[in-house]
Design a protein around this nucleic acid. Structure first.
Lengths: 242, 242
DNA sequence: TTGTGTATATTCACTGGTTGGTATACATCG
DNA sequence: CGATGTATACCAACCAGTGAATATACACAA
C-alpha cells in the first residue's frame, strides 16, 4: 500500500511482462524476473504468492490496454465497418514488424499452460478473447443484423488469432494483411448497403440509424465490470523448464 | 541399424510423440520420455543427439501423415471445392472433441521455441505449414483456375490455424465449424460457376470481379500509402540464436 | 565347433547447474 | 511497538547431458 510498495509491485510486473512476453513463461525463471526488477526473489514472493499468480497478473495487466488499442484503431480509421476492421489488421501488421513482437501473449500463454485449463491465467486469457469478440459483435450488431453478428465476430477473431500464430511462425507480416483482406471481405459480404459508389464514402454515409453514429463514436464498455479475480489459491501445478 | 535398433528408435519416437504433444515439449523431460519408452535416458541419447534433435524428429514424423489426412478428407468429401474445403474443417471439428486433442503440434512447438527461429523443429514446422498451403494453392489453381489461388490458400490456412488456437483456448469446437463456414464462403466467392446459396452466406452480392483479393479498398485510404506489400514469397529465415 | 575381434546397443551412476519456494533476520517507518 | 518491505542464505527436486562399463550381435578364422 505504501508508495514504495506499489512502485515495487509495478516494477515486478513490468519486468515480468517484458520477460514473459519476450521469452515465454516457462522459459523465464522467477529469479530472472526478480533480477530484472532489481530486487530479490524473496521480495518478489512477498508481493506475489507464486509464479502462477505472477503469470496471471502479467496477463491481467495487458487485458484492457489491448482491447483499448483495437478500439482506438477501429475508431480512428476511415471508411465503413469493413474498412475499419481491416484497419485493425493493418495496424497489427505494422506492429509485427517490430523485432520484439512475439505474437499474442494470451494465446502463447494458453499454449504453455495447455494442460492446466483451470489456471487463473487461462481464465483471464479466455475472458480477454471473449471480450474482444463481444466488442466486435456489438459493432456488427449496430451495423448489421443481430443473427449474423455473432458468427461474423467469431470469424474475424479466427482470422485475427490465426494471423497471430502464422505470422509468428513464418515471420511474414503479409499474412496479417491477407487476414485483414479476408475479414473485410466477410464483413462486406454481410453489409446491408450496397457499396457501389467508391468515392463519396470517405466518411460514414448517414445510413438509416442516426444513433449508431453516436454509438460508434463513444464506445460503450462491453460489460460493466470484468474480472472474476480470485481463486488466488490456485496453486496449480508447477511450471518446470530448462 | 539392426532390427532392434529401429524398433527402439520408433519406440522412443512414439513415446516422445505422445508426451510432447500431450504436455508440451518444455514440460516433458528427457527422463520422462525414456521412462515411457521403457529404456534408459542414456540409451535415448544414443539414438538422438540431444533433446532438440528429438523434438525435431517428433515433428518430422507427423508431417506427411498430417497432410495426407487433409488430402483424404478433401478427396472423400462431396460437393464443389468450397464444400470439400469445409469438409476438412468439419472433420477437424470432430477431432477436437477427443479429450486428448491438444491443438496443432507444429504451432504449439513454434510457440515454445519462439526465440529460436533457427531451431530444426521450427524449420520443420514452417515447411509443414508451407506444404499444406502449397497443396491448397494447387487445388485452387487446378480446380478453379484461380489467379488468386495463393492468397486464397493463405486465407484458408489463416482460418485453419486460427481455429486450432481458438478451439484450444476455449475448448469449443463450434469455432472450428465457424472457420469452415468462413473458408467456404471465401472460396465460393471466387468460384467461377454460378453459385447457389448455401448456409451462412445469406446476403449475396452479384459482383462479378472478385477484386477484393487484390487489396482494393472500397474507400480511398486517408493517407497516400496504404500498405507496403512485403515480399509475398520467400519467408525470411533468421539466423539461429543460441 | 569354438574362439576372437568389432561395431552396435544398452545400463548405472553421476555431473554441474537451475528450478520454485522458504527460514530467518534485518531495515524502515507510522 | 508492529506492520510493511527487503536481503542473505538455503532447500529439495529436477534438469539436460556424460563417462565408463557392459551386453549383444555378427563376421571370420582355426
Amino acid at each position: 500500500m505504501s508508495e514504495t510498495g506499489r512502485s515495487t509491485r509495478e516494477r515486478i510486473l513490468q519486468a515480468a511482462g517484458k520477460l514473459f512476453y519476450g521469452e515465454g513463461i516457462r522459459a523465464v525463471s522467477v529469479d530472472a524476473v526478480a533480477e530484472k526488477a532489481g530486487l530479490t526473489k524473496r521480495t518478489l514472493y512477498y508481493h506475489f504468492r507464486s509464479k502462477d499468480d505472477l503469470i496471471a497478473a502479467y496477463l491481467e495487466v495487458r487485458d484492457q490496454p489491448n482491447l483499448a488499442l483495437f478500439k482506438r484503431w477501429f475508431a480512428e480509421a476511415d471508411g465503413d465497418v469493413a474498412a475499419k476492421v481491416e484497419a485493425i489488421f493493418r495496424n497489427l501488421a505494422r506492429s509485427t514488424r517490430h523485432p520484439k513482437w512475439k505474437g499474442c501473449g494470451f494465446l502463447r500463454t494458453s499454449v504453455e499452460l495447455v494442460n492446466l485449463p483451470g489456471h487463473p491465467a487461462m481464465v483471464i486469457g479466455r475472458a480477454h478473447k471473449k471480450r474482444v469478440e463481444d466488442w466486435l459483435c456489438s459493432v456488427f450488431e449496430d451495423a448489421i443484423g443481430l443473427r449474423e453478428a455473432r458468427q461474423l465476430a467469431r470469424q474475424v477473431i479466427l482470422l485475427l488469432d490465426g494471423a497471430f500464430a502464422v505470422v509468428l511462425l513464418h515471420r511474414d507480416p503479409s499474412y496479417m494483411e491477407a487476414a485483414g483482406a479476408a475479414a473485410a471481405h466477410l464483413v462486406r459480404g454481410l453489409m446491408p448497403t450496397p457499396r457501389r459508389s467508391i468515392k463519396v464514402a470517405k466518411v460514414r454515409r448517414t445510413v438509416r440509424p442516426p444513433d449508431w453514429l453516436t454509438h460508434d463514436r463513444a464506445f460503450p464498455p462491453p460489460s460493466a465490470q470484468p474480472m472474476d479475480r480470485g481463486t488466488a489459491a490456485g496453486s496449480r501445478a508447477r511450471s518446470a523448464a530448462p
